[in-house]
Amino acid sequence: MNHKASLLLFCLAASLVGIGCGHGFKLVTPDGFVELEDQEEYAYRATTAQGVVMSVRVEPNRPRGNLSFWTDAIDLKLRNIGYTAAEARDVKTKSGAVGKQLRYTRTIYDRPHIFWLTVFVTDADVFVLETGGDAREFDKAKDEIGKAIEGFVPG
């Protein structure tokens, strides 16, 4: 697996303090995270000082699929490249958006890592909120990450 594929799974996303950043979504940046600038592969990306990374990818819903299709496609790809599925759960945000969260583990450089991918689908777009990092550091940030996901508003 290449470095870019690893980074894809190392992330989830946030927009600036509740303000959409022009990419068709709104998400409050969690406390303890800072925005990374000039992120060509992401609509938004942020990190903690300890390396827990969050991002949002927005892709056209083409071919037009529903939430089940896109989560199945993502899950199959991740399992095929060595991620271990830990859990899948339904998600509903405060705005009423319905999504699916896929949780994975993987050992990187002999250290356990945690990855959450939360998928939301509209007629026009697929939003993948990605977050991940070293398990010890991720555990410290997971409550703030959960709050950010609960506040997500897809465009």
Rank of each mutant, 00 (worst) to 15 (best):
M1L: 08
N2W: 02
N2R: 03
H3Y: 04
L9S: 10
C11G: 14
C11Y: 02
A13C: 06
V17F: 15
I19A: 05
G20C: 05
F25I: 00
L27V: 03
T29P: 07
D31A: 14
V34H: 13
L36R: 07
E40L: 09
E41D: 15
A43W: 00
Y44P: 09
R45N: 08
A46R: 02
T47S: 15
T47L: 14
T47I: 13
A49D: 15
V53R: 01
E59F: 07
R62H: 14
P63A: 05
G65H: 05
N66G: 15
T71C: 11
T71V: 04
A73F: 10
I74K: 13
N80R: 10
N80G: 13
I81V: 13
Y83N: 10
T84C: 12
A86I: 04
R89A: 08
D90Y: 00
V91L: 11
V91G: 06
T93E: 14
K94Q: 12
G99W: 06
G99T: 01
Q101W: 00
L102I: 05
Y104I: 01
Y104C: 02
R106N: 05
R106Q: 10
T107D: 02
I108C: 09
R111F: 06
R111A: 12
L117Y: 00
L117D: 13
T118N: 07
V119C: 12
F120G: 04
A124H: 10
V126K: 02
V126D: 14
V126S: 08
V126T: 04
V128T: 09
V128Q: 10
G133T: 03
A135T: 01
R136K: 13
R136G: 12
E137Q: 15
E137Y: 10
F138C: 11
F138P: 10
K140I: 01
I145P: 06
A148K: 02
E150H: 04
G151V: 03
G151D: 15
V153M: 10
G155R: 12
